[in-house]
Amino acid sequence: MSNNTLLEARLVSRTDKAVAVRTHALSKEFSGRLVLHSLDFRVDPGELVAVVGKSGCGKSTLLRLICGLEKPSSGWVEVDGERLNGLSRHARLMFQDAALLPWKSVKANVALAAPRKSLRDRVAEDALQHVGLRDRAQEWPSILSGGQRQRVALARALASDANLLLFDEPLGALDALTRLEMQALIERLWLERRFSAILVTHDVEEAAALADRILLMEGGRVTFQTTVSLERPRDRASAEFTALKEAILERILGRHA
């Protein structure tokens, strides 16, 4: 119990560290093909923004630019008021594949992200506790299920003091039930820690369930956005939820005209 409150205190103190993201006329070109068209985009501190769109619309590229894995062809990215040059120290990217090191135990995988080496073990255990995998700490990643691996990846991001989490369809390869569980977990962690987050997904329901704001990307541009003001946790059966989902789907499928 006392251990728990200690943890809460530590987590709450993180709240004010969430960072803002802005992109200024951000463009990216791959061998002559324009993937992002002069994008102006913003995420407020502690906001969870979902980006939806068909494959190839540039949403993954946007995330890679924001965390600094790619350089913009023109324009720039600003994280926490600073113009990004190289890798961002705030951002952590989660892929569809958990990208765990198979030769390290679950705990060692999480521990490698901890910024202070002296506290690595404790931080890793705390983080694993948060995703409900404390008792699997000594296992090899290869024996975990896909959902468990993504939980470990999530724990790793938590252990690294991330202020900005970029999710690149992290739940895309999971079965429907596991996906619901993971969505609930992501929402809970986000409510506890209030990091800023960008969730790239092609699952409109996932976007509607988790996001404060939903952007639709088409051909490298944001063509539609809407703020979601439904109460959390969202009732997926409610009329408002369904209406929101339908509205976005119709935009995507181009039936709005």
Partner: peptide, 14 residues
């Protein structure tokens, strides 16, 4: 070596 793992390592500041 899986490029994803290298990217992961870079993101986590190795």
């Amino acid at each position: 070596t899986d490029p994803k793992l290298i990217e992961m390592g870079r993101i986590y500041g190795l």
